[in-house]
Design a binder for these strands. Structure first.
Lengths: 206, 206
DNA sequence: CGGCACCTTGACACCAGTCAACCAAGGTGG
DNA sequence: CCACCTTGGTTGACTGGTGTCAAGGTGCCG
């Protein structure tokens, strides 16, 4: 699913290091090759809110205000990314490259829409379940196991992404664990009863 | 800001009519020329959730699952849209067309991110205020008055979009009206005290 | 062994969803 | 022309979920 080699050479990131920060020029599009990243936005008070997680094959958010990045991006674990300069998009020689790029952009839009639906459904339990299923589906697309989910991000990150407090998330996890629906551990998660989980999630198909 | 005339001829929609429905093939990208539209998604129970509002110059969501539309689109008032077949993207002769397209896509992503931040902030009042300011900014970009906002969509639509109930929205409007911050009417809205409203909104800059 | 993230658990107050009644405007038909 | 219904919005009383505050655990690393 990766874009061809027209993309300029890749870049390696250490865990916790920034790929870009809010305010940086937004003239480059990044595609993840390996590892995982998160994006965050700063609100008026200056505290950070996680806006997305990124897995191999995905395009990083290109949200911007007047050419400056709205969000920052941080590697959650060792990651490699490759760059596509926006000015080079028109010069892609490969005929298949442009449609592939559009496909990736629309996949990202689908994911954002799904997450939006997930957030708009108020209850915290289905919100978290929706996240788990979506995350599982993304891993499955990479050929990884869709039941045994590694979690490169912290609980705090997940809570922030889902717009709820750390405590609520903890309670939701406890509830689901007690019900035998999933096994929630700090660094990984196991989906034990997928049909039951799907019945709990708010939106439709993933 | 409109893409050049390479776009195939435009299409006129009557108020309430569908531009596309969930499940339709998603091989065409629509750009709004005039009027306003909304998109919606159906959840498992089959009831509709509003996912976005679209003004002239904006690209409609292209979210899809295996080439089929995830969302439906309905005209809120008489609207004209133009089509861009995805297979034609590579054949755009105009050198400026492709960067312009990328710009519009990233603007859409910015808007989605902003809305996501707005939804993740839990309280209902800042959520609505954030919507008002964002909507105002979008109108301003079109050269229209940013204080006197026409509302082509119903209250129910707004509530659905913001992930809250009609009653909550009504109460929030009443509160803001009593405070003299804005004037909320069924078909239009006036922002009376923008600085105060900006102080209430959750995310940062719009 | 100590210190520090990171997560868990409990008590409590409050905001928002639910249910229900009420109100205003517009359309329709007799 | 008016009674009737429908649609869209408002307001009230009540309950439950979730944020907040606070204390207690657990694991990791020096």
């Amino acid at each position: 699913m990766l874009l061809p080699e027209i993309l300029s050479c890749s870049e390696v990131l250490k865990p916790g290091s920034h790929l870009f920060r809010p305010g940086d020029p937004a003239d480059v599009q990044y595609h993840v090759r390996s590892g995982a990243l998160k994006t965050y936005a700063l609100n008026a008070q200056g505290d950070e809110r996680v806006t997305g997680f990124y897995l191999p094959g995905e395009v990083l958010s290109n949200s911007q205000i007047e050419g400056r990045r709205r969000e920052g991006a941080i590697a959650l674990e060792t990651a490699t990314v490759c760059r596509l300069r926006l000015q080079d998009v028109g010069r892609l020689q490969d005929v298949a490259a442009l449609p592939m790029l559009m496909t990736k952009l629309s996949q990202r839009e689908t994911l954002l829409t799904e997450h939006q639906l997930n957030l708009a459904g108020t209850a915290s339990l289905p919100r978290f379940v929706g996240f788990c299923l979506q995350y599982s589906a993304r891993l499955a697309k990479l050929g990884r196991c869709s039941q045994h989910l590694p979690l490169p991000m912290s609980r705090t990150d997940i809570a922030s992404y889902l717009g709820m407090t750390l405590e609520s998330l903890s309670r939701v996890c406890a509830k689901l664990s007690k019900g035998g629906l999933l096994l929630a551990q700090p660094k990984e998660m196991q989906l034990l009863d997928r049909p039951a989980l799907e019945a709990l999630a708010v939106p439709g198909t993933y």
